[in-house]
Amino acid sequence: MTAKPESAETVAPFAAELRDVVVRYDRDGEPALDRTDLTIPAGTITGLLGRNGAGKSTLLSLLAGFRRPTSGEVLVGEPGSLEAAYENPWASMNVQLVRESGDVWGDERVSESLSHYELLRPAWDADLAGLVLDTLEVDRCTKYEALSRGKKSAVAAAVGLASRAPLTIFDEVYLGMDAPSRYAFYDLLLADYAEHPRTIVLSSHLIEEIERLFEHVAILDHGRTLLSEPAEDLRGRGTSLTGPADVVARHVGDRRVLSEQRLGRTAQVAVLGSFDAAQRAAAVSDGLELDGVTLQDLFVHLTATDVAPAQPGSGAPVAQPQEER
């Protein structure tokens, strides 16, 4: 039962691709995914960001073959040989999705569920599962149902990490943990990722504390991919300008304004797009202050329900993204 095929270790990190994907749960209702295209590069830690109801969970359950799209293609696999994810044993044995609901037996000991995963996951590392549970202080002899929300999330984290799947997806599982547990989880994830490279997708609507883990970021909004690019490019994409309103307006030019805030004659405007050295020097010499826009701010601005000029600018600390469904 413990003899695993050697080949399991050598499977390369998986890439994933969605082509023109539509998912409809009801025939007349709004589609959960609306002609979505997305590429998740192999070997990266990718952040899938989106507000509640943006379609993140639906998208991720497609990658894991939990369901098939209403139309379009969902492909996963080693780079260069992508294939349909749905009901494909090669795909499902190499893709691990952990959801907040856990997908474990509620009325059984945690260890029972883990042994089912161990039986099926080719690269399962029982020691790692034990380490995660110990670090996050979960007693595996407890029934899953009897655990607190945070400890349940810890079980999901253990399943996701120990599976060592070439494509491992965490669908908001860490949201139930308290802050020290979340940081412990990030540390475990990074350490194991460094040692066993694979593709990891983390979905969240809380960005500040995990954005630094991302190499690639995709933002989903209303069932569509708003953007998908290297995290470092994204961090350099927003610029905020502060200074006299008319001067700011002159330097903003035709860039897309994300938010605008006024205080007397001073304006602070966050725009999409960067400034090259010359433009920057010109702006500074006109008395403007230039600053970057954090990923969290960029996300809030890009996915705001309506363009509200009263939104706090990028310089000020921004409240959590609005929690509405």
Partner: peptide
Amino acid sequence: MITPVHLAAGGTRR
């Protein structure tokens, strides 16, 4: 009871 666990663990409908 087993279906979601099995699919999540990498099993298939088959």
